[in-house]
Design a binder for these strands. Structure first.
Lengths: 158, 158
DNA sequence: ATAAATCATACTAAAGTAATAGGAAAGGTT
DNA sequence: AACCTTTCCTATTACTTTAGTATGATTTAT
């Protein structure tokens, strides 16, 4: 039941872009430096977010990435699903074309409702929190401080 | 964010024991037959549940396992945590001696509250559902039918 | 031209998952 | 006492996923 590095790094990356895109597109290199992540690994991650439609890319020198929508219109769920795939705990409760598709056995199954409810509980949290909310939370906690000590291997550090 | 086979099989196993322990201890072999699982793999899983204190074992011929407590006093959370370890989505929000221990960075962290809230949402579901609730749900859906068609590779099938 | 950047794909090492295997120990039955 | 059933214990293996590295092509501003 863990979120992988792709999901965690991907979320840090998206927040980083949201916070730094005011003066033009943000490059992979800059994000990697700020977040202490591998350039090349981050490149894979950003490609995935880009293909999921969460970013706009500008190629060539001076290029980089920007959010495709306003930070308040991109949810944490959008980001995590782009990186992790479905957040469902089991295959029997998968979304199919945006809708939750129960498995064929669900009519007799003892545990179907359990998995469905776990999925719903996770979805409720991640879908009601936008990148803007994450930034607001950050600035509320840190004021306008630019640099923040980063714990090594800390999933939440940004 | 998936529950592994250990968690899924373990839960099916515990429900199976709860439903079949009236006439004495339930053997690994019988559970494996009923649930279409590998004897040897199930043995590992049941050992883990036993060591977590969820079962009582009776050795020797005619032996097997029984729940250590009443089915209504064993939660789905007890079972899943015994099999999966913590249900926290990240290491920063791990329980330590029963309490949720935030990581040292949590005071400045943009995402700490997110992970904490996901964990809390999952915990709320699994801790408020007992094995007895699972059985009740099953019998409500199936009546007293003994045999139920089992979907291959279905996480919820029991 | 050159440098800075995205884009694309292939490869690899390490870890975790899902089993399989073989036997020792305990306890009931004959 | 011999035998069978069952839990208990540990090691091994095959497979998959994760996390990252490597190489190079393409695009574009200066």
């Amino acid at each position: 039941m863990k979120i992988s590095t792709k999901g965690r790094y991907g979320l840090r990356m998206m927040i980083d872009i949201a916070m730094n895109q005011q003066e033009g597109p943000v490059s992979v290199r800059d994000i990697a430096r700020r977040q202490s992540l591998s350039d090349k690994y981050l490149e894979q991650i950003i490609t995935q977010a880009n293909r999921a439609g969460l970013l706009k890319s500008i190629r060539g020198a001076g290029g980089g990435y920007q959010l495709s929508r306003d930070a308040k219109d991109i949810s944490v769920g959008d980001v995590l699903r782009a990186m992790e795939g479905s957040l469902s705990p089991v295959a029997c409760v998968q979304e199919l074309a945006g809708e939750t598709a129960p498995c064929q056995n669900s009519g007799e199954c003892a545990t179907y409702e359990l998995w469905r409810d776990i999925k719903a509980a996770v979805d409720a949290v991640v879908d009601n929190r936008s990148l803007q909310d994450m930034i607001d939370n950050y600035t509320r906690k840190n004021g306008d401080r630019e640099e923040v000590a980063k714990e090594e291997n800390c999933a939440c550090s940004i």
